[in-house]
């Protein structure tokens, strides 16, 4: 139902992975002396007994560089963390023009979502529904998450949901849904213990 940043995560994990792999691989190669005497583009690999980092001038530049790098990386990290929050990316206010262009009806998508959910939840074998409306009033993109009971005939439930959502959206917006997605959840049926008591007279009759 909600969008999560799968592609963004994979891209950044790949970039960070490549940086770590190349850096770690180079450092290991230098430490083991595998790059001794190798020069690329005028840059000669350090000898394995040389120190990793030598800062000759201990000026105020290093703390300022630390602060600058820390702020940049920190902002990136916070933005990446915030991107993990699933987004609804729902429609903005739906605007429906009358055929003569004399009036404009404004509809909040949450109202339509609530109405569709309520109508779908009334169907047989459906115990609950949640809806997200995306797109516009001319091209409504509807996603419905339906919770059905475990004994339900799922293909039949799907047909009922599709028929009801399509007709309701057409009645409300004057348009068929441009796209309709139905996600099915299953809820275990509550077990009911019932008992029947027979009287001796009924048994002998």
């Amino acid at each position: 139902m909600r969008h999560t940043p799968g592609r963004l995560n994979r891209v950044w994990l790949t970039i960070i992975g490549i940086i770590l792999l190349v850096g770690g691989g180079l450092a290991t190669s230098i430490g083991l002396g595998l790059l001794e005497g190798v020069a690329v583009g005028g840059l000669r690999a350090p000898a394995s007994d040389q120190p990793v980092l030598v800062l000759t001038a201990r000026t105020q530049l290093l703390p300022i560089a630390l602060i600058g790098a820390g702020v940049v990386v920190g902002i990136f990290a916070v933005l990446w963390l915030l991107a993990q929050i699933p987004r609804k990316h729902g429609a903005s206010t739906l605007k429906i023009e009358d055929p003569d262009s004399r009036g404009l009806t404004v509809l909040k998508p949450t109202l339509l979502e609530g109405a569709i959910s309520d109508r779908v939840a009334e169907l047989h074998d459906v115990t609950g529904a949640r809806t997200v409306v995306r797109g516009s009033s001319r091209t409504p993109d509807i996603t419905v998450r339906v919770t059905a009971s475990a004994h339900a005939d799922i293909p039949s439930v799907l047909a009922d949901v599709e028929q009801r959502v399509t007709s309701d959206v057409r009645d409300a917006l004057g348009q068929q849904p441009a796209a309709l997605a139905i996600e099915v959840e299953i809820r275990t049926d509550p077990k009911k213990d019932t008992s029947v008591t027979f009287s001796a007279d009924a048994l002998s009759a």
Partner: peptide
């Protein structure tokens, strides 16, 4: 250095 390289490889595989 080795741990860094292994972590990088792991991240690439996960991604």
């Amino acid at each position: 250095a080795i741990l860094t390289a292994v972590a990088g490889l792991l991240l690439i595989v996960i991604a």
